[in-house]
Amino acid sequence: MADTALTPLTALGHTAPMTSTFGAYSLSEIADLGLASLALRRGGSAEALAERLGLALPGPGLWAGTQDGTLSAIWTGPDQWLVEFPGRACEDVAGDLAARAGSGVSITEQTGAFAAFRIDGPSLEPVLERLGPIDPVAVRPGTAHRTIVHHLGCILACRSENRLDVLGPGSAAAFVHHALELTLRRVVV
């Protein structure tokens, strides 16, 4: 048996998640976020599914999580969600979700498909004004919008007045990071 003690790399290609600060703002890579997509098949009940999962499945433009913060879901389309498992990127989260959700749903692993970044700062408004075409007024705690950031489709999940998580395509992680870095530099000029 070959030695399989491999070193995991983050989406940006480093062994540790990247963090940087721009004035009062910080930008950090969330390397340990497990993700799986969840779609309810036609005719299924979202309420029954939410009950089986023990998770409120949010409506358009929103995200919702459990009280303990171990599981959350982002609305991505009618009867479709991106389910987040913080800290569990190395686990079979899709398998876990499938076991909980039962039948009548379609689930795919998404952990490696996304690169996740977190912006913390005194106010998100100046960041959003420079980030893309999304209306900053529409981004409030509890909302999650997919929009365009430097020509890339990214999900902006607003966790609080001071925290915005950006989920972008993992294959373009460095581009997403560059876009966020550039935006924050412009904010603190």
Binding site: P60, G61, P78, P133, I134, D135, T147, I148
Partner: peptide
């Protein structure tokens, strides 16, 4: 209809 006013660039 679901998400409100959205910018042309998203479409």
């Amino acid at each position: 209809p679901l998400l409100g006013l959205r910018d042309l660039r998203e479409f």
